[in-house]
Design a protein around this nucleic acid. Structure first.
Lengths: 214, 214
DNA sequence: TAGATTGTTAATCGATTAACAATC
DNA sequence: TAGATTGTTAATCGATTAACAATC
């Protein structure tokens, strides 16, 4: 109810899931959804859903649940989905290029406004709508457009160095795809997203139960 | 100490971070690391590090800390890093291709043994060491090699369908990169890894504090 | 020895779940 | 009206942190 309050981190991490689901429901023409229905679709409990939504400017109605249009609106507002964010990608290897060429970001409020690499041979080449620039041009580019988010897509050995360049350029939010923990000042937010770690988590699960089955 | 015990999920998610760090330390020739040193490097508390490591077959030594070679060994063992896992990627779009071409997986025990798509025009093309096969050949391929992990890298509208095909093929661990929650039987482990969600989490953080600064 | 650091227990903190009166 | 579903409080559960005796 009180959108000015601090929303707990586990709740924040669930909000994108709610948003995806409610958008699907709306495409199907569903106008109301109960906490139980949402919980079932997302693998949560109805209690968790009601608790989570109570942090938002939204009220459900007995017997009907939550209005999907209203729910989408508040989720979009909280997640800043209506604001265009300027994103730069550092590292034009396979992953960096794939992200630059991935159309879904722009549609969801994330505009790639720079793709950087230190490899001279890559500079000038285009991927998606982005042309590879020299990493040395990052500061210059930061002067032209305000960079909201920097994505680190370089080998782990270069990750800390790149993080420092981003901080230096005034970037306050970093998505770290490198397989290495980076150190940044406390006023900079870092979110880690590593496919390798997720695979290792699965490998652990397989070791625990999967292998026994086979 | 008791590797047979169930390790809590938050601990599991930190293990890959310990592994990366200890490998770095070993490369630097560091033979011992205290819980405090590890905590500082990874943004944790020394208490958390000691608690986490107490789940493993390992003993530290007063005044010295933990032996890095031993620590790496137990982490590798728990995370199954010494076993080669067979991985298939469903979806040969930008992301799927980038993963197939990314050399780091093989080096860490994940061998790409199949890249599938339903687009006829892509079938037969090669990315990395993988040749694109028809999605209809998945079941057949599963009969030839045991598939440990399936990576879903298709548009969200196809994700549930692909998940069911993987389950049908006997895959017990799924990495879901699609921006959609998938439903699977309880004996199948799913880990979500979505760059979009991570970006939205950053966007929220920017909305809370970043924007005020600028 | 003195001091640093572990392993572990207990305390704290926070998230999830249960329960239920209010309400549509 | 009767019944379904919310919003919210209280209970439970689990993770993190603090504390400290044991130990090298």
């Amino acid at each position: 109810m009180h959108s000015s309050e601090q929303i707990p981190h586990p709740v924040i991490r669930r909000l994108p899931k709610y948003l995806v689901h409610v958008q699907e429901l709306r495409e199907e023409g569903v106008e109301w959804a109960s906490s139980q229905e949402i919980a079932d679709a997302l693998g949560l409990t109805s209690s968790t859903v009601r608790q989570d939504l109570s942090h938002m400017d939204l009220r459900g109605i007995s017997k009907k649940g939550y209005e999907t249009s209203q729910l989408e609106a508040v989720l979009r507002q909280i997640l800043g989905a209506d604001i265009m964010h300027h994103v730069v990608i550092i590292g034009a290897g396979h992953l960096g290029r794939a992200l630059a060429e991935h159309g879904a970001f722009a549609r969801r409020g994330f505009e790639i406004c720079g793709l950087f690499d230190r490899d001279e041979d890559l500079i000038g080449k285009s991927f998606g709508n982005a042309e590879v620039m020299s990493i040395h041009e990052l500061a210059e580019q930061a002067g032209k457009v305000k960079i909201d988010i920097g994505i680190i897509a370089v080998p782990s050995s270069a990750a800390q160095n790149v993080a420092e360049m981003l901080v230096e350029a005034g970037v306050k939010a970093i998505l770290n795809l490198a397989y290495k923990h980076i150190q940044v000042p406390s006023n900079v937010t870092v979110v880690d997203a590593r496919i390798m770690e997720s695979l290792q988590e699965l490998a652990y699960a397989l070791g625990k139960k999967g292998k026994a089955v086979n």
